[in-house]
Amino acid sequence: MNRDSNSYTFLFAGIMVLVVASTLAFTSSSLKEKQQENVRKEQMQNILSTIGISVSRDEAENLYKKFISEEISLKSDGTADPDVNAFKISLKTEIKKPLNEQRFPIYIADVEDSKFYIVPLFGSGLWDIIWGYIAIESDLKTIKGAVFDHKGETAGLGAEITEDWFQNSFKGEKIIDPDGKLMGISVSKTNNDPKGEDKEDYEVDAISGSTITGDGVTDMIFERLNHYMVFFNNLKNEPNKEQISNHIQNHKYDNLANSMYTGLLQFDRGYVPRKFIN
């Protein structure tokens, strides 16, 4: 066959496309399960690392079940939606929905009597998406830990957000000012506190050469946490069950006692309510 003829060219291109497409499709579908398993375990690993538990990917599942007591998907008004599995929410698609249809996943961890609230983060860096998790202590304003990851930031610059030294600088920082306003954490270039000793400045030291990735982290933390403020405020204002039952127990007879007491007091003063005279 003439190798320069049009029909040969088309034939060759057609066969090539078929062979390549079927090879790739076969590889992709046969490896898919294993790949998803890796991604799922990594998600658990990341969630655990925000509360200071570092495990290998294979052990992540067991420890995740042990420490994460609740997975809640919140509606935008801060109430839980029991129909949605929080772990399966992909923020990448979720973020494009209208606000009232979005669900905001939150994980609650119980580690040795302390509670942590872990919020997944999602935003954009310089080249592509960045994401992570941030754990907040039970005072609802101090950061317990944070992890970040990225798809395509520059190695040595923006990609440094995955390094421990950067993530560790978030530990102990406050996200909410004393008036209860959300401040978030700014990745700051003009921070006169490169060692991160001041934990009340709502800032961490930035990475040289990665301004836009750093700003992405700042925006991501503020934007995401902002959606959880309703939930956190509800938690803060809502006394826990024990307090309520104690209160009820202690004040059970208060109303009756009060009215009897005022009644007796008045009777004693010689005052007889009108209805008794008539």
Binding site: R3, D4, Y8, T9, F12, A13, M16, V17, V20, T23, L24, T27, S28, L31, Q35
Partner: peptide, 22 residues
């Protein structure tokens, strides 16, 4: 075929890379 050789090379490289990635 001589006329589409660059495309063929590109396809070979790209599918190898995709395989390695997967």
């Amino acid at each position: 075929p001589n006329r589409i050789r660059i495309i063929v090379q590109l396809v070979v490289v790209a599918s190898l890379v995709a395989l390695v990635d997967q």
